[in-house]
Amino acid sequence: MELAPETVKPSITRLRRAHGQLAAVIRMLEEGRDCEDVVTQLAAVSKALDRAGYTIIASGLRQCLVEEDGEVDTKKMEKLFLSLA
């Protein structure tokens, strides 16, 4: 099942930001930048990815996990959340 475009727009924005941050981390490593700066930037990438994942799960939860009987598949939901841990 596809997520609605208006549902994923904030996540796409976060992922694009993370993409830029990850490129910065690679560039910093190639330039031999200070370890503290690299780790700080890497933490920002990680946080952006986590937030994008949580946003997708939260906004698409009903659309992705509702079974035919209208109930939420809690095992599937738990598995999705744990995959981000």
Rank of each mutant, 00 (worst) to 15 (best):
E2Q: 07
E2M: 02
L3Y: 01
A4D: 14
A4I: 00
K9F: 05
K9H: 10
I12L: 10
R14N: 11
R16M: 07
A18L: 00
H19L: 04
G20I: 02
A23Q: 10
A23K: 08
V25W: 05
R27Q: 12
M28E: 07
L29E: 15
E30L: 03
R33F: 01
R33T: 07
D34S: 03
C35I: 08
E36M: 02
D37V: 00
V38H: 06
V39G: 01
Q41V: 01
Q41H: 05
A43T: 08
A43I: 03
A43P: 04
K47E: 15
D50C: 02
A52V: 00
G53P: 13
G53T: 06
G53N: 07
Y54R: 11
T55W: 00
T55H: 08
T55L: 06
I56G: 00
I56N: 03
I57H: 13
Q63W: 00
C64P: 00
C64Q: 14
L65R: 02
V66Q: 14
E71A: 14
E71D: 15
E71K: 15
V72N: 03
T74P: 01
K76H: 13
M77A: 15
M77H: 12
E78K: 09
L80F: 10
L80S: 12
F81P: 09
L82Q: 15
L82E: 15
A85T: 14
A85M: 14
